[in-house]
């Protein structure tokens, strides 16, 4: 009897994790039905999914473990440039290149986190160190022109004749990444790792006193998040067929990802996807405004952080909870 009760409970809790992810995945999977007539719009959609991946990766690092990594673009760029160089210049197979580049990105993220943890840098100093890393990465891209193509970047020859460059398949490749990342993050949140993450986010000192190795779980978060960023960056680079500094630039990636995540809700599972979807559409609408787009972006950032500081998902959740509460208290028992 009690055994059965537990079974249904696990089944329900499993559904509460998989349900929303499956729903989001399905909703996104049908989008090409409307867009497949336009290569441009499909490109936008693929980029949107890449941003969803970046936002999930950043969410794992910042949302779950509180490390402000201002090097999302650079870590994704290590994946993108690394994959492209390994495949084109070194001549490795595309899949191997992607995986190796992901590994490099993962290790780099882990090292940055290790430094931050080891020197017990707070949010701001972690932000500044990683920002310096981003600037260094950018300077290297420009400085090592013979390898990276300087400010123009370069066209990736490897994989040009595969499905990665067709119109529709890249969308599903990136979508598979989004779903896989969501599942991984969701499962991690339910494991002892997620429990430790919540503890250290709530009260780092208390977590430490409770015997949680805060440093180690921080580094775990960075490793997972950076691997996601690297993998997404590398995969996106191959579907695009080219890399350039702006593909992974600070203004083009980090700032946008931060806004997306803040909009959806930092630390929530689906917030990154909601934010990425919303801002991909907003961006598409604003494209005709040219330079004014930046003004509108700035205004949106201001409005967002002035009036919706916790993001859409937490705010909506609170709203629903409050309504339920008031309905429950209004209804006579």
């Amino acid at each position: 009897m009690s055994n059965r009760g537990r079974d249904t409970r696990t089944a329900r809790s499993r559904w509460s994790l998989f349900g929303p992810i499956v729903a989001v995945g399905t909703a996104l999977a049908v989008i090409p039905l409307w867009l497949d007539h336009s290569g441009v719009l499909m490109g936008v959609a693929v980029l949107g999914l890449a941003f969803a991946c970046y936002a999930i990766g950043f969410n794992v690092i910042f949302g779950s473990t509180g490390q402000l990594f201002l090097c999302v673009g650079a870590l994704a760029g290590i994946g993108g440039y690394g994959g492209a160089i390994l495949a084109d210049t070194v001549g490795l197979p595309v899949v191997v290149s992607i995986l190796l580049a992901t590994l490099v990105s993962c290790v780099t993220g882990g090292l940055l986190s290790l430094i931050a943890v080891y020197r017990s840098l707070g949010v701001i100093f972690t932000g500044i160190i990683t920002l310096i890393f981003t600037l260094t990465f950018d300077a290297l891209l420009l400085g090592l022109g013979s390898l990276t193509g300087g400010e123009n970047g370069f066209l990736i020859k490897a994989g040009a004749d595969t499905f990665l460059r067709k119109r529709i398949p890249p969308y599903y490749v990136m979508l598979a990444l989004v779903v896989a990342f969501l599942l991984l993050h969701g499962l991690l949140r339910r494991s002892h790792v997620g429990w430790a993450w919540r503890a250290l986010r709530d009260d780092e000192l208390a977590a430490e006193l409770a015997g949680i190795d805060v440093a180690r779980y921080r580094v775990y978060g960075a490793l997972v998040g950076a691997a996601m960023l690297g993998l997404a960056g590398a995969t996106y680079a191959f579907t695009e067929g080219r890399v350039s500094p702006t593909t992974f630039g600070f203004a083009q990636v980090d700032v946008v990802v931060l806004v997306m995540l803040a909009f959806g809700g930092i630390g929530t599972l689906l917030g990154p996807v909601l934010g990425a979807a919303t801002f991909t559409i907003v961006d598409e609408i604003l494209i005709e405004f040219g330079q004014l787009r930046l003004v509108i972006y700035g205004a949106l950032v201001l409005l967002l952080f002035l009036f919706l500081r916790r993001g859409v998902i937490p705010t909506a959740r609170d709203f629903v909870a409050k309504r339920r509460l008031s309905q429950a208290s209004a209804a006579p028992d």
């Binding site: 930046l294 205004a299 952080f305």
Partner: peptide, 10 residues
């Protein structure tokens, strides 16, 4: 940062 965007963009 938001303010900076507005200024820069404008």
């Amino acid at each position: 940062l938001g303010f900076a965007f507005i200024v820069d963009g404008f």
